[in-house]
Design a protein around this nucleic acid. Structure first.
Lengths: 141, 141
DNA sequence: CTAGTCGCTTGCAATTAGCAAGTGAGACGA
DNA sequence: TCGTCTCACTTGCTAATTGCAAGCGACTAG
């Protein structure tokens, strides 16, 4: 179902095209986790929705191919990557904020997201990540 | 994959729960069409994304079961229904607006939605539908 | 009586999802 | 040095979902 980076969209309606990239049950949850400062494979697996591991690996690859996320090594040997949002991915924040508001309004007993989620901007997310070195940066540890 | 009206959600995160209802490639496009004043089966089929007829029928049923849309007959013999958004469905407007903005920003060559779409509110959509009789209303037959 | 439309169903093949188990590279402890 | 463990994935396989195509019932028009 997932399309390659420049796979053909069903239409050039911006909604339809966005759904070609994000219209499944998992992709936006990974984006949510990244916004909540989760960065590693295990972190995503720890989320309460219990994403299957093969789907997680596939979605991370797809999100990266589509430029929504990027990764960088947090250690050599064994080579391991941490994931973070690009500007393109961070710009989904308003979408997730609105979708969460809708869920809060219509899904009984749903949780209230943390305050930072409701008030943050996409720029905040990026600044935050930039401030977090790839595992020690200026002074290092 | 689709859940019954009160099917169990993967989690009570408002985002995850919303995606349990709407996280597929077609549901939100039907909502989009309803916002664009499409009301009948054939109208939905006419959209450029070419939704398969069996999927359309199934999604309409699901959206209705979940209270996002409702239907009323627009003719007897043969009995035929037109569909419209409930308040719950119309409240997805901000979500679609944000998603469309994202698509416009990141999907090359994507269309610019009509002006009404960018400026409307959920209340506008409902008022508009209320003003459109079920096929003749005040004087009626 | 014939053909056509509309709104669906149904059958079926192909794709996708998801569960479970496995794998490789190294860390850690005895 | 061996055995055990973790992390980040793969791989295999089955079940569920998707989507194409055809069919169907109730009409309407000619």
């Amino acid at each position: 179902m997932k399309l390659p980076p420049h796979g053909s969209f069903r239409s050039l309606c911006p909604l339809a095209a966005s759904l070609d990239l994000l219209g499944d049950r998992w992709s936006l949850l990974i984006v949510r986790d990244l916004m909540a400062r989760k960065t590693r494979y295990k972190d995503f697996q720890g989320s309460p929705e219990r994403i299957p591991t093969n789907i997680l690996a596939q979605r991370l690859k797809l999100l990266e191919e589509n430029g929504l996320i990027a990764r960088r090594p947090y250690q050599q040997r064994p080579l391991r990557y941490e994931y973070f949002l690009t500007a393109k991915g961070a710009d989904l924040l308003p979408v997730l904020q609105q979708l969460a508001l809708w869920g809060q309004k219509y899904v009984p007993d749903s949780w209230t997201p943390p305050a930072w989620f409701a008030t943050a901007t996409a720029a905040d997310l990026l600044a935050r990540d930039a401030a977090t070195p790839p595992t020690g940066e200026p002074g290092d540890e």
